[in-house]
Amino acid sequence: MNFLRCNQVVLYRWIAHLLHDPISLVTVLVQPLLWLVLFGNQMSSITSGSIPGGSYIAFMTASSAVMTVFNSAIYGGLEMLFDRETGIFDRILASPISRVALITGRFTYIIGITTVQCALLFIGALFLGVRPAGGIPGVLVILVINALFCAGVTTVSMILAFVVPSHPQFFSIIGFAGLPILFLSSALVPLNRMPEWLRVISSLNPMTHAIEATRSLVITGWDFRTLGMMFGLLIAFDAVILLVAARIFSKRLGGR
């Protein structure tokens, strides 16, 4: 059975879940707009003038896109955790389906969702007066950037879901790590306004890479140097994390 078909099978189940669950479908679609309206309107009066490009709402549109992706992706492993707690995960593993497809199929599904979320966010931002400097091609590149970010974060979540003993630990680890990851990135404050130590840490955070690339396309336009670098860093992040996941999965699934 080839790898693409394995992914298709994994996707089938998640899409069927979503279609059976109208509440999740609606919240998934409304959530990004909520981010934007709440953050953008609340903060723009306080901070206008200190932001590159001058518009805090444009600044926050980029952050909201990435934060939405992060939020959906970091819980991406949750379903696998539930599967582990029933017999479903073992049942899947007892079939010949590719183990890696369980990961890639899952993040393909989450990417599908976050791409729609991001697209809606940028449409919503239009009404708040945000005109991305990169134009429509810029927004399309933003969607690709966020897909790369989403893949890596979903994989991290799946590794977590695979190694924790049960789901309370999963929630507490994400609860514990979620905010620091946000604050140790350039989501809320531009890199050049941070103290040195914070800038160094933030520069290592994949969330910063996604945000910097997204933000450059929203505010400054086609900055190929930044884009190239951030693309490279995100691809490296994905590759490393996927290798780690494949290793952990195959090791545990053989010996367990």
Binding site: D21, T86, I88, R91
Partner: peptide, 9 residues
Amino acid sequence: PQDRSADLR
């Protein structure tokens, strides 16, 4: 399997 293997949803 002994445990539930059907997806309830």
